[in-house]
């Protein structure tokens, strides 16, 4: 199969549904494996931080959540371009189903950040460059969600959200830069978040495993949601009827 064929097939819900069943189980298994291994390794075997003691271990949740929060928004922007330019049906399903996941990851990153901040800096919240831009990311997710809920026609809602996601992705670098400008110039001495000088490998290796696990979890989640959404969207199509008959007689 050439790349171009693959591309066209990826846009077709039917093909995606037929192929993705196996992907889903592989991804889910990988996610469980990596996250369990990473968590045990990170929480039980990684050495404690010489300054922060054991409280640093929250990075094994915090960092994957924060990375995913940003990746999901980028993915939304990419899906937006696919939908606006090529009218790819699958892109609309991606847009509809990723917003919630991204928002929860952002919220999780903010929450774990606050929990980590309390013992480390003695405060729940600091208007540091990263916390502020993550908070704004959460608002961007809220905006997408609200816009989708406000537009009754599904197809139009998809395209409106696609446009907003693309505008958001273009704006994110500017927002990030301006926030950093603000906090470095006017905040005086604040703490830098995770920029710990050169973490030892015994600390970051489990982190890496956790991040990979989170990506797998994300991918498995997307595939599962897309499969459900495809069945709902294509419920009138012949192949879905056949599938339903086969499933119900089994």
């Amino acid at each position: 199969m050439t790349l171009k064929e693959f591309w066209h097939r990826l846009g077709s819900p039917k093909w995606f549904y037929q192929m993705s069943g196996r992907w889903q189980s592989i991804l889910a298994a990988l996610a469980v494996l990596l996250i369990v291994a990473g968590m045990i390794w990170g929480l039980a075997f990684a050495p404690p931080d010489y300054q922060q003691g054991n409280s640093f271990r929250i990075i094994y949740v915090h960092v994957p959540a924060a990375i995913l929060a940003q990746s999901v928004y980028l993915a939304l922007g990419a899906a937006g371009v696919l939908l606006l330019v090529w009218r790819m049906k699958m892109a609309q399903l991606v847009l509809e189903n990723l917003v919630g996941f991204g928002a929860w990851m952002t919220a999780l990153a903010l929450f774990t950040g606050a929990v980590w901040g309390k013992p480390t800096w003695g405060t729940w919240w600091v208007f540091d460059g990263r916390t502020t831009s993550t908070l704004l990311l959460l608002f961007l997710y809220f905006g997408l969600y609200a816009l989708r809920r406000a537009i009754p026609a599904r197809e139009a809602a998809g395209r409106a959200c696609a446009l907003l996601a693309v505008v958001g992705v273009i704006n994110i670098p500017v927002i990030k830069y301006s926030v950093e400008w603000w906090t470095t110039l006017h905040q005086g001495a604040t703490f830098k978040l995770t920029e710990a000088p050169a973490m030892p490998a015994s600390m970051w290796a489990p982190l890496l495993v956790n991040v990979l696990g989170a990506y797998c979890l994300f991918a498995a989640n997307v595939v599962a949601k897309l499969r459900t959404a495809i069945l709902r969207q294509e419920r009138g199509a012949a192949w879905v009827r056949e599938w339903a008959l086969r499933e119900s007689t089994r």
């Binding site: 608002f139 905006g143 609200a146 816009l147 704006n171 500017v174 301006s178 926030v179 400008w181 110039l185």
Partner: peptide, 19 residues
Amino acid sequence: LLALLLLPLYLPVLVFGVS
């Protein structure tokens, strides 16, 4: 809804203007 969509995008202008 308009406020919800736009205010995050307005942030850079606010930051540089005030600063």
